[in-house]
Amino acid sequence: MLVCAIHCRCNLFGRIDQREIMAGSTSGGNPQSRPTKNQRREAAREKARQFREQQERQRKRKRLLIQIGVIVAVVAVVLGGWLIIQSVQKHEQAAASVMPANMPNDGVVISEGLAVQKAEPRAADVQPERQTSPDGRLVVEIYADFMCPICGQFEQTYGQMLSEQAQAGNIDLVIHPVSILDQASQGTKYSTRSAAAAASVATYAPDSFLNYFTTLLQPGVQANESTSGLSDDRLVELARQVIGDDHPEQQDQVEKSIRDGEFKKWVKRSTDAANLTGTPTVYIDGQSLDDLSKVSDTLQQKLKDRGIDMTQTGAGASEGQ
Rank of each mutant, 00 (worst) to 15 (best):
V3N: 02
C4F: 05
A5Q: 03
C8R: 10
R9E: 02
R9C: 09
L12K: 09
I16P: 02
Q18F: 13
M22I: 06
M22R: 14
N38G: 08
A44E: 14
Q55K: 14
Q58D: 10
V70D: 11
I71S: 12
V75I: 07
G80A: 09
I85F: 14
V88I: 15
K90H: 14
Q93H: 11
A96P: 00
A96W: 01
M99W: 01
A101S: 15
V108W: 06
V108S: 07
V108C: 00
I110K: 09
E112P: 04
K118R: 10
R130N: 04
D135L: 07
F146C: 11
C148I: 15
G152T: 01
F154I: 04
Q156E: 14
Q167K: 13
D172H: 02
D172E: 15
Q183H: 15
Q183D: 14
A184Y: 11
A184W: 07
S185V: 04
Q186S: 11
G187E: 12
Y190V: 07
R193P: 00
A196S: 15
V201K: 08
A202P: 13
T203W: 12
Y204G: 02
S208V: 06
Y212M: 12
T214V: 14
L217M: 07
P219E: 10
Q222Y: 08
R234S: 05
E237V: 06
H247C: 00
Q253M: 15
K256E: 15
D260V: 06
E262D: 03
V267D: 03
N275R: 10
N275Q: 14
T279N: 11
T281S: 07
Y283S: 05
Y283F: 13
I284D: 05
D285T: 00
D285N: 13
D285L: 05
D285E: 07
Q287E: 12
S288D: 04
S293I: 04
V295Y: 03
I308L: 11
M310E: 13
T313G: 05
A317H: 11
